[in-house]
Structure formats: C-alpha cells, structure tokens
Simulated scan of single mutants.
Amino acid sequence: MNASEMPTWIACLTPPGQSALATLGLYGPRAWQTLRKLFRRRSGGELSEQPVSGRFWLGRIGGDVTDEVVVAVKQTEPAPWLEVHSHGGREVVRFLIELFREQGLQLCSWEDFLRKTNADPLSAEAAIALAQATTPRTAGILLDQQQGALRRALEAIQQSLERGETAAAEEGLKQLTHYASVGRHLTQPYRVVVAGAPNVGKSSLVNALAGYQRCIVAATPGTTRDVVTTRLALDGWLVELADTAGQRSEAEALEEQGIRRAWATAAAADLCLWLLDASTPP
C-alpha cells in the first residue's frame, strides 16, 4: 500500500469529560487537505497548499455551527500529523469528530493513534502504559522506557551477537528476563492475600496498612466471609491487599463458601501472607 492509499485517522487524545480543552489528532495522507477544507483562519485567508512542521494557527472549524480552535502541525513526513485543540466538552468533541468523519477520516482510539504515529513500537507501548501508571516510581520507570531504555538494551544485545560475543548477549538477555516480572507490575498491582485462622488480626492489619477502616473488625470468628480488597502504594509500587475469611475446619455452610473463595484468591496471588496469633500455639 502506497502513501496515497493509506487511510487517514482521527482520534481524541485527551480523556472525555467536562474539561476546558480537548486535543484531536489527525494522521494520514488526507489530513492536511481535509483540514484546509474545514478550517478558517481568524486572520482571514486559507491555509497553504502544503503543511509546514511546527506552524500553528487560530481559527474556526465547521459550517453553520463552528468551534474556535488552534491547529498545529506536528510533522509532515511520512504523512501529515496534525493536532486540533478545541473546547473540551463532550458534545463539542463529538461534533468535530463527526465533521472529519464525514470527510472520510476513520476514527481510532488514542492508543492506536500513538502506535500509528510512533516509529518505535516499544516507545509507543511504553507511552500507552505510562498513562496507566499510578505511582511516581512506576511512572518514572515507564518514562525511561518511553525514552528508549528497553530499545537500547535490545540493540546492545543485537550488537553483541553481531560481534560474536554470545556470552555478553546471554548476560543481557538474562538481565531482561530478571526484570520481566517487575515490568508486569508497572501498571498492574501486586496481589497480596492476607490469610490465616479466624481472629488473628487479618482485617486489622489491612485497615492499618490502608489507613482507614476498609474491613469490618469484630471478636466473633467468621466475621469476614467475602474477599475484601483495597489498593495502596508501598515503596512506590501498587499493591492490592485482599482480606479473606479465616481458615478453620469447623465452619457453617455460608462461612465455608468464604473459605473456598479465600483459597482460590490465594492460589492466584503474587504473595500470600499467613498471619499467626503469637499468643497461641501454631
């Protein structure tokens, strides 16, 4: 498929909501000509025949109904990549997207738009993950990845192989494998199950770590019958704590269901923290 046959895409790059501004991305061979057709400069006159990277204009988009926008040219090669900065209300964004779709542009998600406009697939995926980061520590690691840390590591391994340095390449792969499990938790929490016999302090521990009363605490055994989760950051990492039913052999039918759920949750967890009452024999 040559450049002229490629589709031209539009995506909303900002979260939906009652925001002051929104950003629409346009990318593809027909992006510039479509924008020239719909956009009118505030100072008068039409846009130039060809886009110039780094330029921006204030004007309006629409026909009988218009919105005041700022148009910017992000890049011109290999295909025009433009941004339209408009008012951020949901209906305004929907109105503008429909205008462009009527001109033949295809709607895609902001994630797919990043993949289409970024020449480095690893950088694009890191940028998408960065939007899901929940702590400064994980955001910092993902930002480093977005700026090329993983790509540089892979290039170093490839260069070692090209030089015949297999030991160095194997060491590089070993290091990447070592950090694979950490990478999985940059956007997904570590799942930690708090388990143990009834009344050993499981719910109290979860409440203390959470900083508020997330779980009901009572002296009556079997108070916790369902899996109660709460998320918090520990040392910069997202952790999901799960308070579970106390484990004992003599339990009524309803409590027994809670115990089975506790075992199933523990089996799928990254870590199971088994609590003991230090004042009683194990």
Rank of each mutant, 00 (worst) to 15 (best):
residue 172 G to W: 06
residue 136 P to R: 08
residue 74 K to A: 14
residue 151 R to E: 09
residue 96 L to G: 08
residue 161 L to Y: 03
residue 102 E to H: 07
residue 139 A to V: 07
residue 111 E to P: 09
residue 117 T to V: 15
residue 148 G to A: 00
residue 95 F to Y: 11
residue 148 G to L: 01
residue 132 Q to V: 09
residue 73 V to K: 08
residue 97 I to F: 03
residue 171 E to G: 03
residue 103 Q to N: 13
residue 127 A to G: 14
residue 86 S to I: 05
residue 93 V to C: 01
residue 100 F to M: 12
residue 80 P to A: 04
residue 131 A to K: 14
residue 79 A to C: 02
residue 75 Q to K: 14
residue 105 L to Q: 05
residue 163 R to P: 00
residue 153 A to Q: 13
residue 100 F to K: 06
residue 160 S to E: 02
residue 145 Q to N: 03
residue 78 P to T: 06
residue 95 F to D: 06
residue 150 L to Y: 02
residue 93 V to H: 05
residue 101 R to F: 05
residue 120 D to F: 00
residue 144 D to L: 02
residue 85 H to T: 10
residue 92 V to P: 02
residue 159 Q to Y: 05
residue 87 H to N: 04
residue 144 D to R: 14
residue 77 E to N: 04
residue 122 L to T: 04
residue 80 P to I: 08
residue 123 S to T: 13
residue 75 Q to D: 10
residue 123 S to A: 15
residue 168 A to Y: 06
residue 75 Q to F: 15
residue 166 T to V: 08
residue 166 T to Y: 10
residue 143 L to E: 13
residue 117 T to K: 07
residue 170 E to W: 11
residue 146 Q to S: 12
residue 169 A to R: 09
residue 168 A to W: 07
residue 90 R to F: 10
residue 168 A to D: 09
residue 113 F to W: 13
residue 90 R to M: 06
residue 87 H to L: 01
residue 169 A to Y: 01
residue 170 E to T: 05
residue 135 T to P: 00
residue 154 L to G: 00
residue 99 L to T: 06
residue 79 A to K: 01
residue 74 K to R: 13
residue 174 K to D: 10
residue 105 L to C: 12
residue 105 L to T: 09
residue 162 E to G: 05
residue 83 E to L: 11
residue 94 R to H: 13
residue 152 R to E: 06
residue 98 E to C: 02
residue 74 K to W: 13
residue 172 G to A: 11
residue 120 D to P: 10
residue 89 G to Q: 09
residue 87 H to M: 06
residue 138 T to D: 02
residue 101 R to S: 08
residue 127 A to M: 14
residue 152 R to P: 06
residue 88 G to N: 06
residue 150 L to E: 00
residue 106 Q to T: 12
residue 110 W to D: 05
residue 114 L to H: 15
residue 71 V to E: 03
residue 122 L to K: 00
residue 92 V to L: 00
residue 151 R to P: 05
residue 73 V to G: 01
residue 161 L to T: 07
residue 168 A to M: 04
residue 172 G to S: 04
residue 107 L to E: 11
residue 80 P to V: 03
residue 167 A to R: 15
residue 123 S to Q: 14
residue 161 L to R: 03
residue 126 A to Y: 06
residue 175 Q to A: 12
residue 104 G to M: 03
residue 135 T to L: 00
residue 156 A to R: 14
residue 88 G to S: 03
residue 152 R to N: 07
residue 127 A to N: 14
residue 159 Q to I: 03
